[in-house]
Design a binder for these strands. Structure first.
Lengths: 124, 124
DNA sequence: GATCCATATTCCGAAACGGGAATATAAATT
DNA sequence: AATTTATATTCCCGTTTCGGAATATGGATC
């Protein structure tokens, strides 16, 4: 059942935060690191989990891997992402994530993809 | 995170079918057996899983255990159950479950709770 | 071609899960 | 009291999950 696969993807806090962030647009791994403040392995593995189940797609761009929500998500996925957005509306963790993303976005834009370097170093 | 707990409950097909059935009203274990056509242990364990996480409540009635959705579900739960209803709208498994439930309901009403006896025997 | 950087994969251990077989419990019936 | 009925729990097993440490890959840069 495809629906079960979706729920399996949703039943981990890190993955929820990842998906939530992606609703505001694509991100590369090191940006996730900067925003979520979680180790690289952890993020990379959760992204792989989501990828193999079709909840995200990715595309290489030089050294960076850009992850995004699927261009044409299934009805179930669309429905559940909307539901997630809704449920998360009042939860501070998710708010903080978005706030951090927005705060960092200009810096990333300035330094181009290389912004990743900075972000990663700051995050040690 | 409470939301994660909800998703953990949703990531098994049997539990989805149980929750879906409960949106049409309370049921006892042997009625689940009759409708889902799954062994007693399996159903009982999934109900326990849902119960310990607050997705269902139960109440003893003589020999029978009546399970129902919580009287006052959280915003997240309400939202997700609605989403589930929506996602499931076109899936035959769930349709069949509801159809069976409706077909059996009159018999259960006739024989009172004892309808369980019949249901269980038929299900061997 | 050596190095650096961003990312992925592998290996490990602990915990959780899902299912079935067998057994326990608790209320009802005899 | 013994039995039956409905349900729950325990035990066991194979599989999956999550996390971290270490290592591998692949593209870019020197």
């Amino acid at each position: 059942m495809e629906l079960v696969k979706i729920y399996e993807c949703l039943c981990d806090a890190t993955r929820l935060r990842i998906l939530h962030l992606l609703t505001e647009g694509p991100l590369c791994v090191c940006h996730f690191q900067a925003v979520l403040r979680e180790p690289q392995v952890k993020i990379s593995k959760h992204l792989a989990y989501l990828r193999t189940r079709g909840l995200v797609t990715c595309e290489r761009q030089g050294n960076w891997m850009i992850y995004r929500l699927p261009a044409r998500p299934s009805r179930e996925l669309r429905r559940n992402l909307a539901c997630l957005q809704d449920c998360v509306a009042e939860q501070s963790v998710f708010h903080r994530d978005l706030a951090r993303r927005r705060a960092l976005a200009p810096k990333w834009a300035d330094s181009g993809p290389g912004g990743c370097v900075t972000a990663a170093k700051e995050n040690l």
